[in-house]
């Protein structure tokens, strides 16, 4: 699943419409909108809120590790045109000086820039992107996913000479709407990475979950089962439930799998 984390509903609305997301009424603390593949959480402004919203989304939507996390929002910069979309390649937390480095590959066609996350709105713009969420978002989503699947996208909302009217919903909508195709293309590139490296793993996790529910293994046996099922899968490219005897316990079934993979 792809999780978008967006600070305000104004910034979120174009994405909600583009991906036809419906409100998840089970979530009280944060507004979550979703369809089958995509969720969008409105985090509210600030790095702490952003971090909390990632954590909330993770636990609310099935606690699945190694999903795609994209922080999207508006940002300021001194010398770039309003409306330009950037991928963040380095995040600097202004308060703690902590640095984070998202993984950037050549298939990402977007221009990229470093971003400084501030606790308060930064009135003195410089040559780096200024935002209030990225560091909290990245640090928190790093607990739940691999770095290659975590990214921040920023559209320039203010520079040294101009700024948009943040109270004008329509202006914000139009600014973001222009870049939706690029945002979607970027998302698709990250999805390709996920499909290549994690999709199969997710299938395996499902198999392991169903087996552990049926066989009720001990903690150690669960670890063994998980490892052996992965090996079985890598050898046969599928998992045949018929090789197991569900009337017997986990220990017996571990032996059965071991025999099948001839270890």
């Amino acid at each position: 699943m792809i999780h978008f984390i967006v600070a305000t509903i104004k910034e979120a609305r174009p994405l909600i419409d583009f991906y036809k997301l419906k409100k998840n009424n089970n979530s009280c603390e944060f507004q979550i909108f979703q369809n089958n593949n995509i969720s969008l959480t409105v985090s509210k402004i600030g790095k702490v809120s952003s971090a909390l919203s990632v954590s909330h989304t993770f636990f609310e939507l099935g606690k699945k590790k190694n999903q795609i996390w994209i922080n999207f929002g508006l940002a300021g910069i001194k010398n770039m045109d309003i409306g330009k979309l950037f991928l963040v390649n380095k995040i600097i937390d202004f308060d703690s000086s902590k640095l984070f480095f998202p993984h950037i590959i050549s298939n990402f066609k977007l221009d990229h820039k470093s971003c400084v996350t501030y606790s308060k709105p930064n009135e003195e713009l410089n040559n780096l992107l200024s935002d209030m969420e990225s560091s909290g978002f990245f640090e928190s989503s790093s607990k739940f996913s691999s770095k290659e699947l975590i990214h921040s996208l920023k559209i320039i909302s203010d520079n040294e000479s101009n700024k948009i009217d943040f109270n004008n919903d329509e202006q914000i909508y139009k600014l973001i709407e222009k870049e939706l195709k690029n945002i979607d293309q970027f998302k698709n590139e990250v999805v390709k990475i996920w499909e290549e490296y994690y999709e199969e793993n997710q299938k395996l996790e499902k198999i392991i979950k169903s087996l552990t529910e049926k066989l009720k293994p001990t903690f150690y046996q669960k670890h063994e089962l998980s490892k052996l099922i992965k090996l079985y899968y890598s050898k046969y490219q599928k998992f045949d439930h018929n090789i197991l005897d569900y009337s017997k316990d986990a220990k017996y079934n571990i032996k059965l799998i071991l025999e099948k993979i001839s270890l």
Partner: peptide
């Protein structure tokens, strides 16, 4: 950082 995928990189 721990949360990196060697194969992807």
């Amino acid at each position: 950082p721990k949360n990196q995928n060697f194969r992807i990189q």
